[in-house]
């Protein structure tokens, strides 16, 4: 008897609903980034001047933090599948800790802006900056809680779900960081 090849949906790793969520979030952030660059077209010099107030080094460091955190979450899934439960739990806890570090660096960045008297009304650049990075930071908070939850309830399916959400947060940052911080 020949074995049927997996259907397209069966080929997708993890939970289908998580992928629906990932695609929805990517569309929301994608629309935000398109709106940001569309607004920039009307005032490129003003956007460049506003962007000069951002801390690129801190944001670049945060990229390394999130990428490393995502690596640990992905590694946790591999370890759990190999029945290395303790290693998987430690990896998830470490991934969550790096998420907290991301928020600390982000908080310092916001505090720095506040000290300079910069808020979301200062310029339309900052309205998008606070909206997009703030919405992303909210996802980081949710992701940290989810990582800790799946470290506790550590079935393979749960870890796969938690890690997928965390990778979505990672993926959004990889696209958001260059547009907001680097494109002069």
């Amino acid at each position: 008897m020949t074995q049927q090849p997996p259907s397209l949906l069966e080929e997708l790793p993890g939970d289908l609903l998580m992928w629906v969520l990932i695609i929805s979030e990517l569309l929301i952030f994608g629309a935000g980034l398109i709106a940001f660059l569309a607004m920039r077209m009307a005032d490129p010099a003003g956007f460049a001047e506003a962007q000069a107030h951002l801390d690129r080094t801190g944001a670049a460091l945060n990229t390394v933090v999130l990428i490393s955190s995502g690596y640990l979450a992905a590694q946790a899934l591999h370890w759990r599948k190999a029945a290395r439960r303790r290693a998987a739990r430690y990896a998830l806890a470490a991934a969550a800790a790096l998420g907290v570090l991301f928020l600390v660096i982000k908080g310092m960045e916001y505090a720095d802006k506040a000290a300079l008297g910069i808020n979301w009304e200062t310029h339309s650049f900052f309205m998008f900056y606070y909206m997009l990075t703030g919405f992303h930071a909210a996802h980081v908070v949710a992701g940290i809680l989810l990582l800790l939850l799946v470290a506790w309830r550590d079935s393979v399916e749960n870890i796969e779900l938690g890690a997928a959400f965390w990778h979505m947060v990672d993926l959004v940052w990889v696209l958001l960081f260059p547009v907001i911080y680097l494109l002069v």
Binding site: P13, G70, A74, L171
Partner: peptide, 8 residues
């Protein structure tokens, strides 16, 4: 990230 982290 899509390929290796998310397993695509």
């Amino acid at each position: 990230i899509l390929s290796r982290y998310l397993g695509l």
